[in-house]
Amino acid sequence: MSKQCLCKPARVLIVPCGGASNCGQGTSEAAVQLTREGVGEIFCLAGLAAHIPQMVETARQAERVCVVDGCSLQCARKTVEHAGIAVTDHLDLSREDLPKSRDFDRVQQNVLFMVKLIKQMLKQAPKGVDG
């Protein structure tokens, strides 16, 4: 059994909610794409939700913690903050007029839009949660 977390310190962490809707799933896919492009590193939100000490410490070392939430419940932001980590950048997709549904086959169409928004956000100075 692999008990080794592969999350490593990175300058920019991208933390998707990964929730069970088209928007939530889109956050995961966008985070994967941004990791592949080298914009940042996807980080396991579940590790922070579980308060795994090593993972909380790794997250704390990041310069920017970019949290992407699929809906207005903002579960990812609340999870990160619950673990005592400051959110430097936050995207709440409910403000972007994307229809939310449980259709997991209709995720990809929103991913490019999310990637673009996150890249724009990261090009600017951190604005925190209400930015």
Partner: peptide
């Protein structure tokens, strides 16, 4: 039903 783990981690009461 696939359920949001983040809702539990985020301590969302209704979830």
């Amino acid at each position: 039903k696939f359920f949001c783990l983040a809702g539990i981690g985020g301590d969302i009461e209704t979830m």
